[in-house]
């Protein structure tokens, strides 16, 4: 029976170790293909060229247009989700009744469970025509409506993480503020939000990371034209969309064009990896502060 125990423990350990293998494989896959890519295209070209046209006859390999597209949609999404999400968090914490809170939170979570391809459809067929009715010159594919819809999708992420952070602030702080005659609003912005700022920051960073990696909404609604621009009204292309675009075509495995998606993927991975670890680091520091 002791042997059986050891075997079981070994199997359980193996399952946990697989997660390390997954990370290692991701890095290996991205690195090995990227290295081959960069042996043909210099990193300097990759970082400085202003056009991304690997699928055309005259090939340019500047990642900047894809990064710009990703940045643009992400910025719009955060511009939508941060004020709304943070307001919800404050409202639920400082104003709403406990019963309203338990009723509304699962409903907000529904926003996060809807498949992103469905959000893409919404952006393309509802939001863009609606915006076109009062924004002349808004293209059929654009960063604006994709970004707005993505923002709606990540509202619950910011609101629930921020709410956790705010409700973790010691009661005594809030009571002290009320004791000095502050209104709920003054308490919220004068005391609670500053005290919870690192937790709120973590929620925003994770939301950014999520938006950077989001694929289907931008693939459907933002276009497939890599463009070094910050104009939200014209078609652009994000890193993720480019990977989808190449995957849908019939680029032969092992070609330079094929390797571009791994170089693009590597860029994406580096961004999200840095953002995620930044958030872990802040979270850890913050926890130590309150212990």
């Amino acid at each position: 029976m002791r042997v059986q125990e050891k075997i079981i423990e070994g199997l359980l350990w193996l399952s946990a170790a697989i997660t390390v293998l997954v990370t290692a494989s991701i890095i290996w896959v991205l690195l090995s293909e990227s290295v081959q890519f960069f042996s043909e295209v210099s990193i300097v070209r990759f970082l400085t060229e202003k056009e991304w046209t690997p699928l055309f006859a005259e090939k340019k390999f500047g990642i900047m247009p894809l990064v710009a597209g990703t940045f643009l949609t992400t910025a719009i999404a955060i511009a939508v989700a941060l004020p709304i999400g943070l307001t919800i968090a404050i409202y639920l914490n400082e104003y709403a009744h406990a019963r309203f809170k338990t009723f509304i939170k699962p409903l907000l979570e529904v926003l996060a469970t809807i498949p992103t391809v469905v959000y893409g459809f919404f952006a393309l067929t509802v939001v863009t025509p609606f915006l076109q009715s009062f924004i002349p010159g808004l293209a059929g594919f654009n960063a604006l409506s994709a970004g707005i819809v993505m923002g709606v999708m990540i509202i619950p992420m910011i609101s629930s993480l921020s709410e956790d952070a705010i409700s973790a602030v010691p009661r005594s702080l809030r009571e002290a503020a009320y004791g000095m005659g502050s209104t709920r609003l003054q308490t919220a912005f004068g005391v609670m939000v500053p005290a919870a700022s690192s937790g709120i920051l973590v929620s925003v960073i994770l939301a950014i990371s999520r938006a950077v990696g989001e694929t289907m909404i931008v693939a459907i609604a933002a276009g497939q034209q890599p463009r070094l621009t910050l104009n939200p009204l014209v078609p652009i292309e994000t890193i993720t969309t480019y990977i989808v675009q190449v995957s849908m075509g019939d680029v032969p495995h092992g070609s330079l064009e094929y390797r571009t998606i791994f170089a693009a993927g590597m860029t994406l991975f580096v961004f999200t990896f840095l953002l995620n670890n930044l958030s872990f680091w802040i979270k850890k520091k913050y926890q130590e502060k309150y212990d």
Partner: peptide
Amino acid sequence: GVPSIIYGLL
């Protein structure tokens, strides 16, 4: 936190 599309590449 790894984007889903990266899993696709994997």
